[in-house]
Write a protein that binds this DNA or RNA. Structure first.
Lengths: 118, 118
DNA sequence: ATAAATCATCGTAATATTGCAATATAAATA
DNA sequence: TATTTATATTGCAATATTACGATGATTTAT
């Protein structure tokens, strides 16, 4: 059987730049309150193990582990094993690339705020 | 019938701060290549109408309209009606709040890069 | 060796997201 | 008025995400 429609529920990626796809992946990883809270906490303590995070969040340990994996896959955090715990830290370079791109938006918008949508 | 489990597939929001929820919403809106491309394009041309965007993307018009609505709901863009077209623009203040928060992460990480995950 | 602690993985249930055709709406134009 | 242009809405199919219990793997402590 042949489908009339394209595959649905799936993001089309063939016409975006690599950078757009990568940065969108980073934004997507940031796009959940739990992951925002995890990063807030990592910044706050400057180093962290998972059980520490589990206590901070209203989520079960497997769910936190899953969120950490997504942050890791997006490149936002790295995890290093230390004994029977894992130390998770933010990757400053990845964060910098993300903020750098959005920063250029900000620069260009401010100079144009008069000419747009008045 | 009573469920043993909590509602699944739904984000728990009752234990996060308002700011975490709001910023995660903004990040989520940014978390799709099409929406990243839309914003890149808006920045590039400094003002835009939707049909312009439709031509830039590999998506049908209703899909673009839907993405624009999500950016709007997150507060990242505003749309003003101009005749039979709509002028969409980035909201500089919302972008600034988002970048401001992530910027504080960056500040704190850089000073701590020696003490974490070595 | 056994138990406890820490974290990951698997399976699964429920909701959310993505995309498009069809259609609706509203303004501009012929 | 009728048609074109620009955008939004609805309905639906398919995949993705979120969450948790159960379980596995590994390290530390007893």
């Amino acid at each position: 059987m042949q489908y009339k429609y394209m595959k649905m529920g799936v993001t089309k990626t063939e016409s975006y730049t690599e950078k757009q796809i990568r940065l969108a992946g980073i934004a997507k990883a940031l796009g959940h309150p739990a992951r925002m809270a995890i990063l807030d906490h990592l910044v706050k303590v400057n180093a962290c193990i998972c059980s520490d995070i589990v206590e901070e969040l209203p989520l079960a340990q497997p769910t936190v582990s899953q969120h950490l994996r997504e942050l890791k896959q997006a490149g936002l955090i790295r995890g290093t094993v230390e004994g029977n715990a894992v130390c998770y830290c933010i990757d400053a370079q990845v964060l910098a690339e993300f903020l750098g791109h959005l920063g250029t938006w900000q620069d260009r918008i401010q100079t144009a705020s008069e000419t747009c949508c008045k």
